[in-house]
C-alpha cells in the first residue's frame, strides 16, 4: 500500500483537475469542506468514486457514497485506507 500522503496528493490532484472545473480553486487543504466550497456536486461525486475504484482498486458501494466519507480530502483518504485494510 502506498503511503497516505501520496494517496492524498493523488486525490487532491484529481479533484482539482477533473472535478473543481477551475472554480478559481487552485488549492485545497486536507480538511476543507469539498461540498460547502461547491467543489463536489451530484455529478462530480460519481466521477470521484470511479477514480477511487480505478486508482486504488477498491469497490465502493452506493451505501458508502456518504457525506461523512467524502466531506474532505482527509475523509476520502481515511475511507480508502479503511477499504484497503478490510480487503
Amino acid at each position: 500500500m502506498t503511503s497516505s500522503s501520496a494517496n492524498i496528493d493523488k486525490i487532491r490532484r484529481f479533484i482539482l483537475d477533473k472535478i473543481a472545473l477551475g472554480r478559481g480553486i487552485t488549492a485545497l487543504a486536507d480538511e476543507e469542506s469539498l461540498v460547502e466550497r461547491g467543489v463536489i456536486d451530484s455529478l462530480g461525486i460519481f466521477q470521484l468514486v470511479s477514480f477511487l475504484e480505478e486508482t486504488f482498486g477498491v469497490q465502493v458501494g452506493d451505501d458508502e457514497i456518504l457525506l461523512e466519507n467524502f466531506s474532505t480530502i482527509l475523509d476520502i483518504d481515511h475511507f480508502v485506507r479503511a477499504k484497503l485494510a478490510a480487503e
Binding site: V35, S42, G44, I65, L66, L67
Partner: peptide, 27 residues
C-alpha cells in the same frame, strides 16, 4: 445542499424525518 449531493444521505433524510411529500426535479 451538501446532503443533496449524496443519494444515500438523501434517502436516509427522507426516512429519518418521516417525509410525507417529496417534490424535486426528476434527476
Amino acid at each position: 445542499e451538501s446532503v443533496a449531493v449524496f443519494p444515500a444521505n438523501m434517502a436516509a433524510f427522507i426516512a429519518q424525518h418521516g417525509i410525507s411529500i417529496w417534490y424535486s426535479v426528476p434527476s
